[in-house]
């Protein structure tokens, strides 16, 4: 590159990007790839720290707090997810580092997936697909009856962009919508519950779509599950640690709740093996947002955030810190 051409701005990466993202972005930005250096991470960061103003997080792997501390010039962390539980937001607030998330690019896919998991759990789609593929239908006769969705009371935990999109979809199924969130939303007519247990006891179905924070860790505990009851169904498209997973497995084994559709788990990619044998659960490996449509929109949003930062314009999807 000739000295007269300005160098693309530097962006720090702690892990490789998707190859398609790398290809699309590397013309516009110069990636500092920590894993390619033979030096230990801290030494490498110490060498480069003075010029690094932006960190791009492409995965849900935690950003070590000391990385942030070692980057005095850091002004922006660009996240690739909606939830930012892997980033120390308190430190960012303290140090004046802006943070962006995936905004609403995953809203439709996550809401679709929540409804898909729900219909699957109630109507036994995956379980009866197994039944057909194993050749049981002609041998063992009709598949047992399942449960109806239309008209069931749906309690949504966290009525943000994704929770609202789930509500809108399930309204079209004639489901009364109830919700819990930190504060009551003035813009909706759904019934509000300040307490998750109260929400669970008035719901047939609980859908978890809130952010994972210190306050929401294990927000779905044994008490909530018992309040939901034997025919109740839990769908989790938020984060694994929102549910006390050990208690969930116990409640399912003992018939204390009716079923579960889970896209997220406490120790991903490890899933409690007790669940593998159950026909009243649907399991999916954190796949709710894995569509080319989502990834296309995410790439555009990441580009928009980076370009806005380097041209001193307002960020496209900043989070309130």
């Amino acid at each position: 590159m000739s000295p007269s051409t300005p160098q693309p701005p530097e962006v720090l990466l702690l892990r490789p990007l998707l190859p398609s993202f790398d290809a699309a972005l590397s013309g516009k930005f110069r990636f500092v790839k920590t894993w390619e250096s033979p030096l230990p991470l801290h030494d490498y960061l110490a060498q480069r720290a003075a010029s690094i103003r932006v960190l791009l997080c492409s995965s849900l792997q935690p950003v070590p707090p000391d990385v942030i501390d070692r980057l005095p010039a850091l002004k922006l962390i660009v996240g690739s997810s909606v939830g930012l539980d892997h980033i120390d937001l308190a430190a960012c607030r303290r140090l004046g580092i802006a943070v962006t998330n995936a905004g609403s690019v995953f809203t439709d896919d996550t809401a679709d997936y929540a409804v898909g998991l729900l219909i699957d759990v109630l109507r036994h789609i995956s379980a009866s697909d197994r039944y057909v593929r194993q050749g049981f239908w002609p041998l063992m006769g009709d598949y047992p009856f399942s449960s109806k969705l239309s008209g069931k009371r749906v309690g949504i935990v966290g009525l943000g962009s994704i929770g609202s999109a789930i509500a809108k979809r399930l309204e079209a199924f004639g489901c009364p919508i109830l919700y819990h969130s930190r504060t009551m939303k003035q813009s909706v007519s759904y019934k509000y519950f300040a307490n998750v247990c109260d929400l669970a006891s008035e719901s047939d179905i609980l859908i978890i779509s809130c952010a994972l924070t210190d306050e929401t860790f294990h927000i779905i505990d044994k008490k909530v599950m018992l309040a939901l009851g034997k025919h109740g169904v839990i769908i989790n498209v938020g984060r694994g640690p929102l549910i006390d997973e050990k208690e969930l497995v116990k409640c399912l084994m003992q018939g204390e709740i009716g079923g579960a559709g889970l896209d997220v788990f406490e120790n991903e990619p490890v899933v409690p093996e007790e669940l593998f044998k159950m026909d009243n659960v649907v399991l999916s490996g954190h796949s709710a947002v894995l569509t080319p449509e989502s990834f296309h929109d995410l790439l555009e949003l990441i580009t928009a955030n980076l370009e806005a930062f380097f041209s001193n314009k307002p960020l496209a999807s900043p989070v309130a810190l």
Partner: peptide, 8 residues
């Protein structure tokens, strides 16, 4: 979804 469930 059925395939994802089998995969897990």
């Amino acid at each position: 979804i059925c395939q994802a469930d089998r995969y897990v």
